[in-house]
Design a protein around this nucleic acid. Sequence first.
DNA 1: GTTTAATCGCGATGCGGCTC
DNA 2: GAGCCGCATCGCGATTAAAC
Length: 504
Amino acid sequence: MGKVKRWHSEEIAKLKEICSRQEHVDIRGKNNPFWEKVADEMEEHGFDRQANAIHVKWMRLIQPPRMKSSKKGQSNRWDSSDTEDEERDEEGIVDFDGETDTKSDVLFQIESREDAFKPWATGSNWSDEESDIAYQCIKSQRDKEKELKLEPITADQIWRIVAKALEQRQIYRKIPNIYIYWKNKGREKYNFDERTPDTIEKSSRGIVRVRGGKSAQNSPGHAAHKIDPCNSTPQSSTEEYFQQNNSRAETAMGDVQVQVTSQQHDLLMIEYTKYNHLDNPVVNKLEEDTGLSREQIKLWYRNQRAIDAKEADIQKEVKLQTEKDLSTPILDETGVQSMGLKRYRVSDIGYHLQEEENPAKRARHSLGPEILMKNHGGILEKPETFGRRSIIPEPNEPSANDVAISTIEVQQPSLKSAPQRNIPDSTSDVTTVMKANREMEQQKVHAAEEEYKQLELAIAAHKERADLELKAAHAKERELTAQLEIREKATKRIAMIESFLDDY
DNA sequence: GTTTAATCGCGATGCGGCTC
DNA sequence: GAGCCGCATCGCGATTAAAC
């Protein structure tokens, strides 16, 4: 795919202008000539876009506001960007998360309309002036408390004070940004800990958080590192927010990237190992287990697949190189490619024997490690490792993959004949040739058997998923019935009250 | 510099509605 | 019922940017 051409604000503005002039024109349908006209008009203004692209862009623009999950929150408000959120922001539309059930949420409530237009500073590169202000605020507050023997205020309140002080100097820093800066740099810089002794004591029972999950522990560049103790035990809603629901924290903050905790990572990986694509029951389960949003779970899967694909490509290259180096390769390039595993959709069942025209770009592992290994024609001597995070559990790990095919999409071993081996002429012994042929045929039989097993497993798993979906539907149905009953009762009560009022 | 969360545009696919 | 169309959704490659 070539480089994508992004929409710039001028271009979007022009599109909006053109479309808003056509209020009464039927714009439905991507093949509507209207879009051709728009494309022509855009071209007149120097914007080269195809009608279809304009249509899609417009449909996205007019979609109802979606939940903010962009890391480019306020920080990029002043940049020329083309994200829909920002486009809406330009029009003064503010998206609300709507979840404000905890004090943490209240703390991170989306800023007011007025705040939305403040030039928020982001990042941890604070100027000396800024950090001095923060330090003065924090220190004077704690000193005052000590002096007057007052109950120490919470960290959240301190961040607010700092924010206000900065604002007085036309510096706009969000509370999460202040918290992060102080935690990571400020405390050390001024050698001043704003936390109460109690909190520090609690924090000293630090936990080890491994970025990238447990499998990252042994990986270069991903050594387990002990997080600053202050990070381990929340002392305030700010910290609590970061640690317990970092996804929403990020959502509200806009400039802090969410880090999936090792626990969340493990939970995700367990499911991912079973099948590297998501389906509803799994998303629901993960949502509940990890506390991450659907979007984040999807993203995590997406990125994980990308990581795996990258690793798989590297491995493939290495393998090819190795085989090139060997004088009598078992499989030539075509053979290796034929190991590419193809993902089939439900509708493909029955057609799966079609010969694969183009080998899959990447190895997938929807069928679990054992099958995956077998899919590699038994050539894979040891569990395939995709980067730091092996998708293959250790032998003694409980295999989550025995019934692990979560969808009908299956790994499809190619039934293409394995290419003939290069039998050296010097050993043109009939027995050797026959043995080689026998081996080849055995491989075919093996591949067919495996495919059969895979389909069986895939169907079983799909049924399992379907059962789960059905159960969920029944639960919803019961919920609906209960709601109906409540409504009926309420209606009756209203009728009674009304008749009583009438009589009265 | 590397890793990883997140974004973008685009194409593929599935599904529902409509017409024949 | 087959075929077409519009639309929504999902996954991908490429990319950006925060975090380390």
